[in-house]
Design a protein around this nucleic acid. Structure first.
Length: 644
RNA sequence: GCGCCCGUAGCUCAGCGGAUAGAGCAACCGCCUUCUAAGCGGUCGGUCGUGGGUUCGAGUCCCGCCGGGCGCGCCA
């Protein structure tokens, strides 16, 4: 609110200078209003005189002087030129206090802003295989994804939260998982690379007691694991609009249809060769390596799982079907259909992304999306290229006219049939990069007793997210009931995950996180909210009500002004987070807002029966601060307790 | 070899090309007869890995190097 007003004032001043012929009429951009480092520099700063100096053909200080002369016509502003040409704004406290009613009027929409262009965005996150509980590693993606979805929504976009269930019948990993469960149920030894954790035994026990027929082990174990995942995520405060089944794409025939489409477009084929690109630094193609797929190289049984009968194998036997993803910037072609006829995960991905783009299944009821955001863990970053290629292959249109500006060079000639195909593929790739954004969050290393705790699903050495939540809750509130412990554990875990940038590696020291207990910043923020709730209640008991009509110009204490400025920053922070996905800044912001309140509370007594007008103004400010804190905690998915 | 990420206070990490680089923890010293002390005030702590470049201005952008994590062929 306030930054927009100041920015507009500066823009108007520039316009006035242009109109009176003192400046050349060029585009100076939107003036940015930034924070000041120290109070001596006022409340806000603007560097427009520095950035526009060159375009204006003036030195920065002279331009600054001219702007100040224009701007000083506004009564509520004092402006100075400092350093190389900064405009330092000092705003009148009463002017600042005038924003308080606007904060109260915005209520729970106080964090919201209008986007430059509203987008329909599909955010997919977590999406792990249903072969184990949600781990602490996935917890980071869950916290990040849910927070990002909240932020994008607050920034004015239409957001759809989605979980992709990897329940495809062709999945090697799920086959192995089912086999491990089956082995336990039937008292055999778990296969060598099988899954060995306690949770596998738990699934096996439930299957055994329900006397599930052996041919349904796979479905049953998958369903049980999925149920557990949903529960764990709900307990972590993570919900989805859609749980999208991979298998449903096969059942509807979507995968077959997409493969048909790609084949007829010529971006997928059965030629027995794979193209691989040798890339130099910077992604330039150095060499195209063509590998002929010789039948003798077939390393036999490994590709033919025992669950597939020899009859099925014979029937499925066709040539390998390749997605020529090298046409779309991927570093090697990908298999869509294996030699034994079974489709790969990538084949499902093709259909899945088609469905996301068009909502062909109608499951979301949203229609086509402008942007797909897919949040993946650090071990999946190699997936960016192939997913982008998948989307590009879907978007490629051989009929689209291109300019065919130059002939194929030697390297291009190995990949593309014609200049037209090359240009069409490039257009599709550019569009794919706009439509699909794969966001990788970096690894979380869990430290226990000073040692990194290894985590692998298969050997059973996993650390479940829900166990972390419970552990944190129990340590920090030993006397609370389980529901309360879960809430506390969830709040602490979410805040901790979100404190660091998703693109930074992060150490999660369990011992430290639990031992630091009361010093956790989440309590600092929540305590501010509880204090605020308490003081507003206290005031009401004394007959002092929150009232937006009251004389707020009494709020002239520097700590009052600082608090108001801080609340007004929320939509600005949200907007930034929505632009670069750096939602971790909201934890910093929440801490700063809490600090601004604690400082205010320390210096300014709110409830004073001898000062009814001031008390009313202050309690009204308190309510505004409470609304702001509640909003930011809501975005983080952390609770805002009224008592602690 | 190629790709992604990281290197900032003793530790964990923030830091929008902008002014004197910040927070929490750890260590030390103070403040509760007054609205919640899970709070407030203060002290200590830095060659921003390194060398160049761009810029009026670089922790931030570009290039090189050093160090670390992760990933990289019919698993996902």
């Amino acid at each position: 609110m306030i930054r927009e007003e100041l920015s507009r004032a500066v823009a108007d001043a520039l316009d006035a200078l242009v109109a009176s012929g003192r400046l050349p009429g060029v585009d100076y951009g939107v003036p940015e209003i930034s924070d000041t480092r120290s109070p001596e520099h006022g409340d806000f700063a603007c560097n427009i005189a520095l950035t526009a100096a060159k375009k204006a053909g003036m030195n920065p200080r002279a331009l600054g002087e001219a702007l100040v002369a224009e701007l000083s016509k506004a009564a509520h502003l004092t402006i100075e030129i400092a350093g190389p040409g900064f405009l330092n704004f000092r705003v009148d406290p009463a002017y600042l206090a005038g924003f308080v009613p606007r904060i109260l009027a915005a209520g729970d929409r106080v964090a919201c802003t209008e986007p430059d262009r509203q987008l329909r965005i599909n955010v997919e996150y977590v999406s792990v295989n249903p072969n184990g509980p949600i781990t602490v590693g996935s917890g980071r993606g869950a916290a990040f994804g849910s927070c990002l979805a909240n932020v994008l929504e607050a920034a004015g976009h239409i957001v759809h939260r989605e979980y992709y269930i990897n329940d495809g019948i062709n999945s090697e990993q799920m086959r192995l998982f089912a086999e491990s469960v089956a082995a336990l149920v039937e008292g055999r030894e778990i296969p060598e690379n099988g899954y060995k954790g306690d949770y596998v035994a738990a699934v096996a026990a439930r299957i055994a007691s329900a006397s599930v027929p052996s041919q349904s082990y796979r479905e049953a174990s998958q369903a049980l694991m999925l149920e557990r995942q949903r529960e764990d995520l709900a307990n972590f405060g993570v919900e989805f609009d859609t749980w999208f089944s991979e298998q449903s794409l096969h059942d509807r025939g979507d995968v077959d249809r997409c493969i048909e489409e790609l084949t007829s477009k010529g971006v997928a084929d059965e030629r027995p060769r794979r193209f691989m690109l040798k890339l130099a630094k910077g992604g330039k193609i150095e060499e195209v390596v063509v590998e002929d797929q010789v039948e003798e190289e077939d390393d036999g049984e490994a590709l033919h799982p025992p669950t597939l009968s020899s009859r099925e194998r014979e029937e499925g036997e066709k040539g390998t079907l390749w997605l020529r993803s090298t046409k779309f910037g991927d570093d090697m072609d990908r298999v869509l259909r294996r030699r034994d006829g079974r489709l790969t995960y990538i084949a499902s991905d093709v259909a899945y992304h088609r469905d996301k783009l068009t909502d062909g299944s109608g499951i979301r009821g949203n229609g086509p999306v402008d942007k797909m955001i897919t949040i993946l863990g650090p071990d999946h970053h190699g997936y960016i290229g192939r997913l982008t290629a998948v989307v590009a292959a879907l978007l490629e249109d051989p009929e689209v006219p291109t300019k065919d500006e130059h002939p194929l060079d030697a390297i291009e000639a190995e990949i593309y049939a014609s200049p037209h195909e090359r240009d069409a593929c490039r257009l599709a790739l550019e569009e794919a990069r706009r439509r699909l954004e794969v966001v990788i969050f970096q690894i979380v290393r869990f430290m226990k007793e000073g040692q990194p705790a290894p985590m692998r699903k298969r050997d059973g050495n996993i650390y479940a997210l829900i166990d972390l939540v419970d552990e944190l809750g129990k340590t920090m509130a030993p006397d609370a009931d389980q529901e309360e412990q879960r809430r506390i554990g969830r709040d602490v875990a979410r805040f901790f995950y979100l404190m660091r940038s998703h693109e930074s590696h992060m150490d999660f020291d369990i011992d430290l996180a639990t031992s630091e207990g009361e010093d956790n910043p989440v309590f600092y923020v929540q305590y501010a909210h509880a204090r605020l709730s308490g003081v507003v209640d206290k005031a009401r008991e004394a007959g002092i009500e929150v009232n937006a009509e009251t004389d707020l110009s009494l709020l002239v204490h520097p700590r009052e002004s600082t608090l108001i400025k801080m609340i007004l920053d929320l939509p600005f922070e949200v907007r930034r987070c929505a632009e670069d996905y750096g939602v971790h800044r909201l934890t910093t912001y929440a801490t700063e807002l809490a600090r601004a309140f604690h400082h205010f509370y320390d210096a300014c007594r709110v409830v004073q029966t001898s000062e009814p007008d001031l008390s009313r103004a202050r309690v009204t400010l308190c309510e505004a601060a409470r609304v702001g804190l509640q909003a930011v905690l809501g975005l983080l998915g952390v609770s805002a307790p009224t008592r602690m």
